[in-house]
Nucleic acid binder design. Structure first.
Length: 814
RNA sequence: GGGCAAGUAGCCGAAUUGGUAUAGGCGCCAGUCUUAGGAACUGGUUCCGAAAGGAGUGAGGGUUCGAGUCCCUCCUUGCCCACCA
């Protein structure tokens, strides 16, 4: 028997109705609920099945929350600036704006074709002047409060493309387009002071703002994501120790987390970029040192990381430093395994207790002094460093202390002698936001010979992206080639001035977009206080795990900075966060254009329908898990919908209107399960329970339209089109999404009898049927008289009987 | 090297959080209906065994009346970070 279920006929119809009338709104009075998807970059390839997974999951959740009576905010927008559109422009000459708008159109069409219930009246596009006007405002806000500053910094440079590259364009130290090795180049760059917010701060009125670290403790995020952020911030407690350069006033300060090993320090190493090198030009091998520094400057990231086994360095001949504890004179080396950007850019060499120092000392034949002995004292002849804690030896008055005690006492001593102190260091560095790129928000700064860097006055925002530019790479930002862009007067003194030609990292645009959705058309502020108070913070945020650190950290930084200056009243923007697992190709590989294994959701929609696609992606497995696509399996979900449809037809024809107890029990169990699973985002098991319910319906002679309509409501968040259609088929006039969510009756779930397993010495021997309400003693007695159990008990004594009500009887015999 | 996940049928996965392992789906097998079907429906489907029974959740140990679930050791896979002193 063929059904008349034709998704192609009904899905478009309902999509049009939803788009025209807006999503049916219930007046539930439960308050607001802000559900947000990480907004996509509108790529030319269209929607990926991974997007579908993400957006369907939030769509189901949003529809469920609306059923519960929440005022759900569910917006969508476009993270529209970025490299692919610009690279495409370089190749084809087609303006990024044109290409971007095209892609957005495709994305939107695809989103609507799978029935996603977005409020497109709030749509935003980060590349529109109406939006980036406020991105520029954000920049100026940070600048005016001392949280944006300019300094010389290294950038990635591709010689063959004649351009600066963003970090994400550098793959394994090579340019992702030309494949050439990426060089480092010093340029003036803008930074945001994200490091100011690692530890808690306060607003002017004294309200507490949690730090980027401490704030993690109060939000409902995956533990792995929190751990990754913690690790990225990399807080480490240690000490700074001053080594005076012998016979001079100069000093080298080192950072160490292992102050307890200080007596094992036999030399000091500084980074090639360390400022002291310029001050100490009296060493004998000046030329060689210069050469080494030049060479390491030219070294690529690739070389610095790949060659990490063989450490290089050079001794500053004639320079010695004084060991602060012993007064010994030690040699000083320059080596590029020491990073200028971490700690003080200098380390004390303790080869006996640090792997890297050990390798370095071996190579340059430096003294190795053991000062820590581990509990299980390792073979002294063994190659390598002992890096664990232990007890101090050969450390004068500190000998005999444990590492932990020594770190405390030595720090006290340093402080007293003014030779150092305890310090905390972070791995996290300030955020470099300059990009020498066209397709981004221009940095709203004007440079004047007299006034220096002058912010563009608010009334002149936005600083619009010019259109008279050459996209071909020249070594400068394409904006430099625009005449209209550059002709500008200093806002302070009126003299001829020039504009900053760099644009902002696209992560700046996405660091605050979730605020704009509250009030997307506002021209006076990025959002009104009233709108922010109504919808923010985001209650549920969902997106790929690839944004575990950068985007999610930057967005938190923005919230904290804005709160500090009174623009927001919360310090964590995303209360609950969830990552969908990646969807792989059928063979378990990553989907990629080059491998030709990308699944196009459009094709599935055409062949089997949007509802089948939605159900399939949710049924594949747990939301957060990585899972492989399997085209064959989609048919199972389509079959399920066919059955639902057929049952609906039989009810419409009046074939079955008898009340059936088994069907009722099945329904109420399903109401319970689906409701619970929806709240926990366990969509795979929710769908499974709907299938079980339908199978039960089919086993009965027929079901009433009341039971069936309740079932449809449970199905509707997952498969909205078919649910709406069948609901209408039952003669209902209003949308199914205005119906009340079904409630289960605990009495109807309970069966009259329960099957209890009986174990003898841990093995299940039989299952007995027990009438509900039977006393524990009676159940035990019933178990003991069971024939199969008796066989196993023959000739043995019963030592113990354990009864877990409703579950199991466990008999222990000897 | 560090951090985080995860290993259950032929495949995707369930398992009331320590209580009958393998629900639901795919696939496969048989049957029904059909001119026919790769449609639909019904039944079956962890392995060994004729059965009784036995084995069984990456491997090995432990705790427990009872372990997929808790503890220890190891193996494998995936992801992220990685010379951070």
């Amino acid at each position: 028997m063929k059904t008349s279920y034709h998704p192609q006929k009904i899905e478009g119809k309902w999509q049009k109705i939803w788009a025209k009338q807006g999503f049916p709104k219930k007046s539930g009075g439960k308050g607001k609920f802000y559900i947000l998807d990480m907004f996509p970059y509108p790529s030319g390839d269209g929607l990926h099945v991974g997007h579908v997974e993400n957006f369907t999951a939030t769509d189901i959740y949003a529809r469920f929350k609306r059923f519960q009576g929440y005022d759900v905010l569910r917006p969508m927008g476009w993270d529209a600036f970025g490299l692919p559109a610009e690279n495409f422009a370089i190749k084809t000459g087609i303006h990024p704006k044109v290409k971007t708008l095209q892609s957005i159109k495709t994305f939107k069409r695809q989103m609507q074709s799978i029935g996603l219930s977005y409020d497109f009246s709030r749509e935003i596009n980060t590349s529109s002047p109406e939006y980036y006007r406020w991105t520029q405002w954000m920049f100026l806000f940070l600048y005016k409060n001392g949280l944006a500053y300019r300094k010389k910094a290294k950038v990635n440079w591709c010689e063959s493309c004649q351009t600066v590259l963003a970090n994400e364009q550098v793959i394994d130290g090579k340019c992702d387009r030309s494949g050439d090795i990426v060089m480092q180049k010093d340029l003036e760059q803008w930074f945001f002071k994200i490091t100011d917010f690692v530890e808690p701060t306060k607003t002017k009125t004294g309200k507490k703002i949690s730090g980027l670290l401490s704030g993690l403790e109060k939000i409902d995020w995956p533990e792995s994501t929190k751990a990754a952020q913690k690790h990225w911030i990399g807080r480490s407690e240690g000490a700074e120790v001053t080594f005076y350069v012998a016979d001079t006033e100069e000093e080298i300060r080192v950072f160490t987390t292992r102050l307890d090993t200080v007596y094992g320090c036999t030399y000091v190493v500084i980074a090639p970029e360390h400022p002291i090198v310029a001050k100490l030009l009296n060493f004998q091998n000046k030329e060689e040192v210069k050469k080494y520094i030049e060479k390491s400057k030219k070294k690529t990231d690739l070389e610095r990381t790949e060659l990490n086994k063989e450490k290089t360095g050079i001794c500053l001949q004639g320079v010695e430093v004084v060991h602060p504890f012993t007064g010994e004179r030690l040699l000083v080396y320059i080596a590029d395994y020491v990073l200028a950007t971490y700690g003080t850019g200098a380390v004390m060499g303790v080869p006996a207790h640090d792997e890297r120092d050990f390798a370095f000392a071996k190579k340059y034949q430096l003294e190795i002094k053991t000062v820590i002995e581990g509990e299980a004292s390792a073979d002294p002849n063994q190659e390598g460093a002992y890096t664990g804690d232990g007890r101090l030896v050969d450390s004068k008055e500190f000998s005999g202390l444990t590492s932990e005690e020594a770190r405390e006492k030595m720090a006290v001593w340093l402080r007293k002698e003014k030779l150092g102190k305890k310090v905390v260091n972070y791995r996290l560095r300030d955020w470099l936001i300059s990009r020498q790129r066209y397709w981004g928000a221009p940095i709203p700064i004007i440079y004047c010979d007299d006034c220096g860097a002058v912010p563009v006055p608010d009334k002149n925002l936005p600083v619009k992206l010019p259109t008279d530019v050459d996209f071909r790479p020249t070594g400068e930002s394409p904006l430099v080639s625009s005449k209209s862009f550059h002709k500008v007067q200093c806002p302070k003194c009126g003299a001829k001035a020039r504009r900053e030609s760099d644009t902002m990292d696209t992560f700046v645009c996405s660091s605050w977009y979730y605020l704009r959705f509250a009030d997307p058309q506002n021209t006076k502020a990025f959002a009104s206080k009233k709108a922010l108070a109504k919808y923010l913070p985001v209650d549920f945020y969902m997106g790929g795990a690839e944004h575990t650190v950068l985007h999610l950290l930057y967005a938190r930084f923005f919230a904290k900075a804005l709160m500090k200056y009174g623009y927001l009243s919360f310090d964590e923007p995303f209360q609950k966060l969830c990552h969908q697992g990646m969807i792989l190709a059928e063979n378990g590989q990553k989907m990629s254009k080059s491998k030709g294994n990308v699944v196009n959701p459009d094709q599935v929609v055409v062949e089997l329908g949007a509802d089948s696609l939605r159900l399939y992606e949710m049924f594949m497995g747990p939301l957060e898990d990585m899972k492989a696509w399997n085209t064959k399996s989609i048919i199972g979900l389509r079959r399920f919908l066919e059955k639902v449809w057929r049952l609906g037809e039989s009810i419409q024809n009046g074939e079955s209107s008898i009340k059936n107890k088994d069907a009722e029990t099945a329904l109420h169990r399903t109401i319970k399960k689906v409701t619970e699973d929806l709240e926990e985002l366990k969509f795979n098991t929710a769908i499974s329970s709907l299938m079980i319910c339908l199978n039960a319906f089919e086993k009965t002679n027929g079901i009433s339209s009341i039971l069936y309509s309740q079932f449809l409501i449970l199905l509707s968040p997952f498969a909205p089109h078919i649910a709406e259609e069948l609901w209408a088929g039952l003669g209902k006039e209003k949308s199914i999404f205005l119906a009340p969510w079904p409630q289960y009756d605990a009495k109807k779930i309970m069966a009259e009898t329960t099957n209890i397993a009986v174990q003898v010495n841990g093995k299940v021997r039989t299952v007995i049927v027990v009438t509900n309400g039977t006393s524990a003693d009676d159940v035990k007695a019933q178990a003991l008289t069971d024939e199969k159990v008796k066989d196993h008990l023959a000739g043995k004594t019963v030592k113990k009987i354990i009864y877990i009500p409703g579950k199991i009887v466990s008999i222990v015999i000897g």
